[in-house]
């Protein structure tokens, strides 16, 4: 059964850009809750994308992958992180970022442009589908989120975003990659998320950050 998806290219392109938009939205957020919700939405968008790819190529692996992604990244991870936000209300907002958010969004766009320029000149000539520049840029935006933020959970979101980018790229250029591998990767990411949540809870337990303590971690 090969199901012809109407407007396949447009839908894929639109979903890709929506993923980028959700990423930019996260760059522009100084609150933690919306960032976590945005990562959930982003994961669900990628799930939708994989489902479309499945309908297009009729590769069952992609369907399983979509199910795993949707359930784990779209629902479980965000719930785990939101659970932690509930317990640390004082960490809801990242101080110091709220004034910078518009410039962070624009930085994100500049990163997109630079990332695309690099990608186009270095990687793209060897691949057939140009859409893979989106996951590449997504990866860079994930890094940007990690670098510019101090809040543990936002950084975790940046990490998941990176993984999303990889997943996206994998689905586009290597759809036949072993399902077992993908499944294990998802489990691994879950491990990182859980560890991250535990550690960030512990970090929050020390409310004051004394420079003298962190002095030991320099040099």
């Amino acid at each position: 059964m090969v199901f012809v998806v109407p407007f396949y290219e447009e839908i894929v392109g639109f979903l890709g850009i929506s993923v980028l938009l959700s990423s930019l939205y996260m760059q522009g957020q100084s609150f933690v809750d919306p960032t976590i919700r945005a990562i959930a939405i982003q994961s669900l968008l990628i799930t939708a994308l994989i489902v479309i790819l499945f309908l297009h190529t009729d590769d069952l692996n992609l369907l399983y992958l979509a199910i795993i992604t949707g359930v784990m990244r779209g629902i479980v991870f965000p719930l785990v992180m939101l659970y932690q936000v509930k317990h640390f209300r004082h960490k809801l907002r990242e101080t110091g970022t709220s004034q910078k958010t518009p410039s962070l969004v624009l930085t994100g766009i500049i990163i997109i442009i630079i990332g695309y320029a690099i990608f186009k000149s270095v990687v793209l000539p060897y691949f057939s589908n140009p859409e893979i520049s989106i996951p590449f840029v997504l990866l860079l935006l994930g890094f940007l989120l990690i670098i510019t933020r101090k809040n543990s959970l936002t950084q975790m979101c940046g990490y998941i975003q990176e993984e999303n980018g990889i997943l996206y790229m994998g689905a586009l250029i290597a759809p036949g990659i072993q399902l077992l591998t993908e499944f294990a990767v998802v489990l691994d990411v879950m491990g990182v998320v859980i560890i991250g949540v535990i550690l960030s809870a512990q970090r929050d337990a020390f409310k004051t950050l004394e420079p003298s303590d962190l002095d030991q971690l320099s040099g």
């Binding site: 392109g13 850009i17 980028l20 938009l21 930019l24 518009p102 766009i109 997109i112 520049s133 989106i134």
Partner: peptide, 22 residues
């Protein structure tokens, strides 16, 4: 200004979408 910068970002992204989408 944030509101406007978002709309500017969207407009800029729309151009980028042309390139990203190939």
């Amino acid at each position: 200004l944030d509101f406007l910068s978002i709309s500017f970002s969207l407009a800029l992204l729309s151009i980028l979408a042309l390139f990203l989408g190939g």
